[in-house]
């Protein structure tokens, strides 16, 4: 795997682990990290021997959110840069691999936005989330689009408009995290989470995930059309053909 300035990337078998690494800035997100994450998405997308991408933070922090110190009143962040961030999040959300967010410690703002884009989301009891952008005077990105789908509109309003912090356990109760454990058990939880996702059927993963992501946005008729097209593709995939051959074989033997 390629080296990145703000990410430590390791590949073990079919699993790539990207660790957010800006030790002097509490893993805050700057332009370099955005570029690194974009590069990582392309690299993982192009790797045919990768089934799973894990995102985690270095040390006892996932990310402290956007690095406001990287900007100055004269040279403020423009919407073009914001769009680039959202493109990267979308690429993560639609990646043709399984994606896992493993959260320990603070996971603020943009960090939480990354988590919402992943297929599986796990944390430790030390995880602490906050989407405090509105409190600060801007917006928590397209988390505004995603979070209510996980936790419901009322809870989403509460979290986004108050900017309050919530723990890993609370995030699990809300439905944002799938599972939470003590830090000492985190490696085992990550491993069992990955195993629960595999085996990897890239076509079914992409079709199923896309339908789920779009299920709140379309009418029944439009969605049915999409579903039929997606299912047609799955039924004509190599893995489904193998399944049918195996079923025939099992029946005759």
């Amino acid at each position: 795997m390629k080296d990145y300035e703000t990410l430590i990337v390791n590949k073990k078998g079919n699993v790539v682990t990207a660790t957010i690494h800006r030790p002097n800035s509490k893993n805050a997100i700057d332009i370099q990290m955005l570029n690194d994450l974009s590069g990582l998405m392309e690299q993982v997308e192009d790797s045919h021997d990768v089934d799973v991408l894990v995102l985690q933070g270095d040390g006892d922090i996932f990310s402290s959110g956007i690095d406001l110190s990287a900007f100055s009143p004269e040279k403020t962040l423009d919407v073009h840069g914001i769009h680039k961030w959202e493109k990267m999040c979308r690429q993560l959300e639609r990646l043709d691999k399984f994606t896992v967010a493993a959260v320990n410690g603070d996971c603020i703002g943009g960090g939480a936005q990354l988590v919402l884009a992943c297929d599986a989301r796990i944390g430790t009891t030390k995880a602490k989330f906050q989407l405090n952008e509105v409190k600060l005077g801007f917006l928590p990105g397209m988390a505004t689009f995603r979070i209510a789908k996980y936790i419901g509109l009322g809870r989403a309003k509460n979290l986004i408009l108050t900017g309050k912090t919530f723990t890993g356990s609370e995030a699990q109760q809300l439905g944002m995290l799938d599972e939470v454990c003590e830090y000492k058990d985190f490696d085992a939880l990550l491993e069992s989470t990955i195993n629960s996702l595999l085996p990897f059927n890239p076509v079914a993963l992409q079709m199923g995930r896309r339908l789920l992501n779009e299920c709140y946005a379309e009418t029944y008729e439009d969605f049915l059309g999409d579903f039929l097209a997606a299912q047609h593709r799955c039924l004509n995939s190599e893995s489904f053909k193998k399944l049918v051959i195996k079923a025939k074989k099992d029946q005759t033997s």
């Binding site: 639609r94 992409q206 999409d226 097209a229 593709r233």
Partner: peptide, 12 residues
């Protein structure tokens, strides 16, 4: 509509 859906889902 069907072929548009099919192209959408096959090319992402």
């Amino acid at each position: 509509r069907k072929v548009i859906d099919a192209i959408k889902y096959n090319l992402g």
